[in-house]
Simulated assay, not measured.
Amino acid sequence: MRIHATVAAVSGALVLSAFVVPSAHAADSAHSSYRAAVAKVQEAARAASGRTVFTGSTGAVDGVPYDLDANFSDIKVNGGKAIAVGTTKHVTVPVTYTLTHGADVDITADDFLNGPYLYKGSFDAPDNSLFGDAPGTCTPTSATVASCKGDIDIYPADPDWELLNSDAGAWKAAGLAIAYNGEDTDPSKVGVADQGGFISPNIQRYSKLTANAAPEPVKKGKTVTVIGKLSRANWEDNAYHGYTGQSVQLEFRKNNSSTYTSVKTIKTDSKGNLKTTTTAKVDGYFRYRFAGTSTTPPVNATSDYVDVR
């Protein structure tokens, strides 16, 4: 869901409807109910208060959630590795973090929920946000500190939680905690901690690369033609399209060797296609290798064997 922070006033009915414990806290709930509920709480809290930061005390305000005494730290997303997302497959991104809270905050309560999320753009007005299907789980390490883990769940083909091609690249990580305190009618008795600005690896459009060398077999000294194609996921039509104007290495590995050497660098055409020639010298394997960009992961084509006679 493309979440946009709102600072305009909202009606009391909307605020109250947001602060209902999400049914996704139950094991048999649909995958989207928890993340939809927490996103709604976040947006309603920001709109009602005109604030985006919910850490530290600002004093009680009627109809507005109070600042929960909880802070996030040491957020680590996907082990620091880039997150490659294709066109249809559900991607689960593991996150670990530390939750520090006041002595009066019961993180073991059934209606205390917390978890990580990712956002694109600014924390105050994100272009997009990605949550998990379920809240994070925490193990107390002291009376006020807990070691936690959670997931970010990405469904590229789900129109309700869309990714646009422009979303590829840099994101930030954040943590959101909600203490309902047994309350579902008075938002001012619900605590919210919402904290962003943490490092996250890039989210990238999954890439594919092919290579086919011909003729096979070929006489020594004759020309080998290697064709291929570099494509990447398009999140807006859920298909793969050629990645144009990209530098790709043609590599060769001798038979019975484990090492590839660079033959030449060429660029993809307007449809992502590759075509080049080289001279046949010895038996071995040709492949293309793409080093990747900030929006697209590196990829190696499956090698193609050529018998030189």
Results as ranks from 00 to 15, higher is better:
H4S: 14
T6H: 14
A8Q: 09
A13K: 14
V20P: 01
S23H: 02
Y34C: 01
K40C: 09
R46H: 08
V53G: 09
T55C: 10
T55F: 06
G56D: 08
V61W: 07
D62K: 14
G63Y: 09
V64L: 05
N71D: 11
N71A: 12
S73M: 07
S73N: 08
D74K: 08
G86Y: 05
K89V: 05
V93N: 02
L99Y: 12
N114M: 00
L118P: 01
Y119I: 11
G121P: 08
S122V: 09
D124V: 07
D124C: 09
D127C: 01
S129E: 04
L130F: 15
L130E: 10
T144H: 12
C148H: 08
G150M: 00
D153S: 09
A157F: 11
E162W: 10
L163Q: 04
L163P: 06
S166A: 12
D167L: 02
D167A: 05
A168S: 09
G169R: 04
A173N: 07
A174H: 09
Y180T: 03
D184P: 03
T185W: 10
D186N: 04
G197N: 06
Q204G: 06
K208G: 11
P217D: 08
T223M: 08
G228I: 06
R232W: 15
R232P: 06
N234Y: 04
E236M: 00
N238P: 00
G242L: 04
Y243A: 13
T244R: 15
S247N: 15
S247V: 15
V248Q: 13
L250W: 06
R253F: 13
S258Y: 01
T265L: 05
T265M: 11
K267L: 14
T268M: 09
N273D: 13
T277A: 09
T279Q: 01
T279V: 11
A280W: 06
D283V: 03
Y285D: 06
T295Y: 09
T302V: 11
D304P: 07
V308C: 01
R309S: 15
